[in-house]
């Protein structure tokens, strides 16, 4: 194995800090990626409540659904860290189990996101004109406009796409780029999973390969923690900015 030859040499070497080059690189990259998402989140917040037409977050968001997908992503972080722990202990079998779970959970999250995007794009408004209950501001507007002269209900598609309004624009691009990060992570972890079947491909000595992928994966998770709070929970809250 050429890799093995290379790493035998490596073990003799001392870096200035005693830390590994690639791990420092990964942390610098993550610091840099913070600025990437900060710019997107800032754009979302600057435009919050500035959309001229609906649908608004309150119309399309389904907090229970997103809570489940958030839960899925959090669990994938746990399985990721367990995969890494299994590898450190030398259990290749445990490693494969957990890393495959991570891939499945990550893919599930992406599935939720696709479903969500699809639902938003095909958002349907149904208003009972005789007995309207719990209308959002946007629905109230539709009610005022359409429910007159004995119309007993209003039914129409009001999809949210990136073109619809500022909310659609900022929401889809922010969560879409997060989804792109998740996709790259899933491909990376899947590659590690497959590589673990190659003899000497994934070994406890070469745990750093997995460590780096794990750092990236957890970072994508913490970004989602912020997005869930800021974009979803706080996004629905219409009292701010005044």
């Amino acid at each position: 194995m050429a890799e093995a030859t290379a790493s035998n040499h490596e073990s003799e070497h001392q870096t200035t800090t005693g830390l590994n080059h690639r791990k420092i690189l990964m942390w610098v990259f993550l610091g840099s990626d913070c600025m990437f998402f900060a710019t997107l989140i800032a754009t979302y917040l600057v435009y919050k409540g500035k959309s001229l037409s609906g649908p608004m977050p309150l119309d399309v968001f389904s907090i229970p659904v997103t809570t489940v997908s958030t839960f899925v992503l959090l669990m994938s972080s746990m399985s990721m860290v367990l995969a890494y722990a299994a590898l450190r202990k030398g259990s290749l079998k445990g490693y494969r189990t957990w890393i495959l779970s991570t891939v499945i959970l990550g893919s599930t999250f992406l599935g939720f996101q696709t479903f969500e995007f699809y639902e938003f794009a095909n958002h349907h408004v149904h208003i009972d004109c005789i007995n309207p209950v719990d209308l959002t501001d946007y629905e109230q507007g539709l009610f005022d406009k359409n429910c007159k002269d004995g119309v007993d209900h209003y039914d129409a598609q009001h999809g949210l796409t990136p073109k619809t309004n500022l909310f659609g624009t900022t929401f889809f691009v922010l969560t879409g780029l997060h989804g792109t990060h998740v996709t790259i992570g899933v491909i990376w972890l899947m590659s590690l999973f497959l590589y673990s079947f190659k003899k000497g491909g994934v070994t406890p000595e070469r745990h750093l390969d997995t460590d780096l992928a794990a750092l990236y994966w957890h970072f994508v998770d913490v970004v989602w923690i912020v997005i869930f709070a800021v974009v979803y929970l706080f996004g629905v809250f219409e009292g701010f900015p005044s």
């Binding site: 890799e3 040499h9 073990s11 870096t15 005693g18 830390l19 590994n20 080059h21 690639r22 390969d209």
Partner: peptide
């Protein structure tokens, strides 16, 4: 080469 892309430190 030991330091570059090393996996084992």
């Amino acid at each position: 080469n030991k330091a570059s892309d090393s996996t084992k430190v």
